[in-house]
């Protein structure tokens, strides 16, 4: 699904965030992107999402170079990628149902489809009884579930979660990770950038470790850190 060939990203201020990364992510993969802050995890996600363009090298999504997407096509690329954020980014004035339905609304789907799809997704993430509540009335874990529901409601083939458990307690973090794994088992490719070493170690999924913008380790059924 995603191929990166010798990808580098150098920002205008000279910072080399990603340095000569070659990486293949097949369809249906579950992948942890680990490494210290500033290792280039977020930049790598942004390169796939085409929020940033690679300075050198190629990023292919479904065999198409993301740099080739011109202005108007970028939203179409992004509809294939569900984003999950550390700070959830829910709209405070919309209830859970409308937040999740917002994905469908902004991509021009009709009310009928929203009424059909949203309840099903809310049930899947376990928020079927909270659809009328507003983000403020939800716990952190519930807000993250709502954010995940919003990311998957239009059935994108890829989910990118940037520190999805960064603001959550350990128990809730595990719940969220197992929800993401559950989504992966239904066929969605999932990339999780995280610091949560204990979860990474216990889940035994593919681990790509970044350091100073370079891939220093890529293991099937890996761990956060070899020393642990």
């Amino acid at each position: 699904m995603i191929q990166m060939y010798n990808v580098s990203k150098i920002f205008d201020n000279g910072v080399k965030a990603v340095n000569d990364v070659t990486l293949h992510i097949p369809k249906g993969d579950f992948l942890f992107l680990v490494g210290p802050s500033g290792a280039g995890k977020s930049t790598l996600s942004k390169l796939i999402f085409r929020e940033e363009l690679a300075t050198r090298g190629k990023v292919l999504f479904n065999k198409k170079n993301v740099a080739r997407y011109k202005g108007k096509e970028v939203p179409l690329l992004r509809r294939n990628i569900g984003m999950v954020f550390q700070d959830f980014r829910l709209l405070p004035k919309k209830n859970v149902f409308d937040n999740v339905g917002f994905t469908l609304q902004v991509t021009g789907k009709g009310r009928r489809e929203i009424k059909k799809s949203v309840p099903a997704v809310l049930k899947m993430v376990g928020l079927e009884n909270k659809s009328e509540m507003f983000p403020k009335q939800l716990s952190g874990g519930e807000q993250q579930r709502a954010c995940i529901a919003r990311a998957i409601v239009n059935r994108p083939p890829l989910i990118i979660a940037d520190e999805p458990t960064g603001n959550l307690d350990p128990v809730t973090s595990r719940d969220i990770m197992s929800l993401l794994l559950d989504i992966n088992r239904r066929g969605t490719t999932v990339i999780v950038a995280t610091h949560a070493w204990d979860i990474v170690n216990s889940m035994r999924q593919r681990v790509v470790a970044l350091s100073a913008g370079q891939v220093v380790r890529d293991e099937e059924k890996g761990a956060y850190d070899r020393c642990r």
Binding site: G71, K72, P75, L76, L77, R78, R79, M83, R89, L91, F102, T103, V106, T107, G108, R150, N154
Partner: peptide, 11 residues
């Protein structure tokens, strides 16, 4: 957020 969700500029 709309941009992240794939809304077009037009929308």
């Amino acid at each position: 957020i709309m941009k992240y969700l794939g809304a077009t500029n037009f929308f």
